[in-house]
Design a protein around this nucleic acid. Structure first.
Lengths: 177, 177
DNA sequence: GCTAAATCTTGCGTTGGATCAAGATCGCCC
DNA sequence: GGGCGATCTTGATCCAACGCAAGATTTAGC
C-alpha cells in the first residue's frame, strides 16, 4: 500500500528540503506559516509560550507530518513554535496545495477528513492526560501510549509535556521502573 | 442568513426530542452513541471518568450542538459521558445522516470541514488552558473567553473543568473580582 | 412560598510537588 | 576520542493548593 508521503511526492507537492540544527526553530509563535513538513529524520517539538515559559504540546518524530494547524485553519498567526530537538531533515510542501490535492479526488478527500478525525481524537486523549490529577498517573498513561517519546526526547521536555518538573519525572522513573 | 440548525431541520434530519432532568445522563462513558444533539434549552456537561472521578471536559449551552465525537470518528464506544446540569430539551439527529447530508453538497461539505477546523482550534485552546501552571491564570484565561460558563454552570463544575478544587475557585473569585 | 437539599464560603492543618543547590553523567562538537 | 556544556539525579526545604469541617447561602421541587 502506498503511503501518504509517497502519494504527495509523486504528485510533486514537495517543494524542497529543510535542515535544522539542534535547537534551531522551524517557526516561531506569532508567525503565519503556510507549509506542511514531513520529518525525514530527527525530532521536533511543538511549543507554546505561556507566561514567558515554553510549554511542550506535542512532538514530531521521523516519519510524521507537522504543521501549524491553527494557522492553516484560522488563517491567523500560529500560537505555536516548532523547534528541532536534534539535527533534523524535513521535506516541505505548501499546505494549500496539499489541501487542494487531497480534495481533488473522493478517496483522497475521505482520507483527508479521516486524518482530521484522528487529529481530533489525539487532542481529546491529550486533554484526558492533562486532566489526570496525579503526576505518576500522567507519566504512566503517556509511557504506555507513547514509548517513542521516552526513547527520542530528552527528559526535561517530557517533564514539561507531562506538566511536572524534571526532578519529579526523574523520581517517578526511579520509583516506577 | 440560515443557521445550520434551520438547514438540518428543513432537511428533516431531526428525528425527535429528548428531555433530561437535572442530573440525568444523556449517555454514559463506554457506550456507542450515533446521535447528534442540538441543545434547545438547558445546559449539558461532557465528562470523562479518571480514577473514579468525573472530570469535566466541556459544556453544551442552549443553541449549541453536542455529540460523542470520538465515537463518531473511531466507531468505538465513547470515553465521554454527557449529563444535564439542569432540565434540558434536546433535538436529536442521527450523526451518520448528518454527515452524509453535509457531504452531499459542496458548500455544505466546506462548512462541515470548517466546523472540524474550529473544533480542532478549540481543543488546542483547551490544551493551552490546561498547560497553564497557575490556577489563577487558568481562571482568568477562561473567564475572559467564556463568560457564559460562569453564568450558567455551577461553580463546582467550573472548578473541576479548571483543574482545581471548588474552594480554590471560590477564593480566586473573591480575590480577582 | 416553604422546606429540604445542594452548593458555596471560610478557616485551618496537611502535603505533594516545586524550588533550590550540588554533584554525577551524558552526549555533542571539534 | 577528549573536552565541555547540557542534562540528569539526589537531597533538603518550602509553599501553594488540597482536604476536611462547619456554617451561610442559594436553589430546586412540591
Amino acid at each position: 500500500m502506498q503511503t501518504l508521503i509517497q502519494l504527495l511526492d509523486e504528485a510533486g507537492l514537495f517543494t524542497g528540503h529543510r535542515t535544522l540544527r539542534r535547537g534551531e526553530y522551524l517557526m516561531l509563535a506569532g508567525q503565519r506559516d503556510r507549509n506542511l513538513y514531513y520529518v525525514e529524520s530527527g525530532t521536533l517539538v511543538v511549543t507554546v509560550v505561556i507566561n514567558d515559559e515554553e510549554q511542550c504540546t506535542r512532538f514530531g518524530y521521523a516519519g510524521e507530518v507537522v504543521a501549524a494547524i491553527d494557522s492553516q485553519v484560522g488563517g491567523e498567526p500560529s500560537k505555536f513554535g516548532i523547534k528541532a530537538l536534534r539535527k533534523s531533515v524535513l521535506r516541505v510542501a505548501n499546505y494549500g496545495a496539499y489541501h487542494d490535492f487531497m480534495r481533488a479526488d473522493p478517496d483522497r478527500h475521505a482520507a483527508y477528513e479521516a486524518s482530521l478525525g484522528w487529529l481530533i481524537c489525539g487532542l481529546l486523549e491529550r486533554e484526558i492526560d492533562l486532566l489526570t490529577p496525579s503526576p505518576e498517573e500522567r507519566y504512566r498513561r503517556v509511557l504506555e501510549r507513547s514509548p517513542r517519546l521516552f526513547q527520542e526526547v530528552p527528559a526535561k521536555y517530557i517533564a514539561n509535556y507531562l506538566r511536572m518538573t524534571p526532578e519529579t519525572l526523574s523520581r517517578l522513573k526511579k520509583g516506577a521502573g
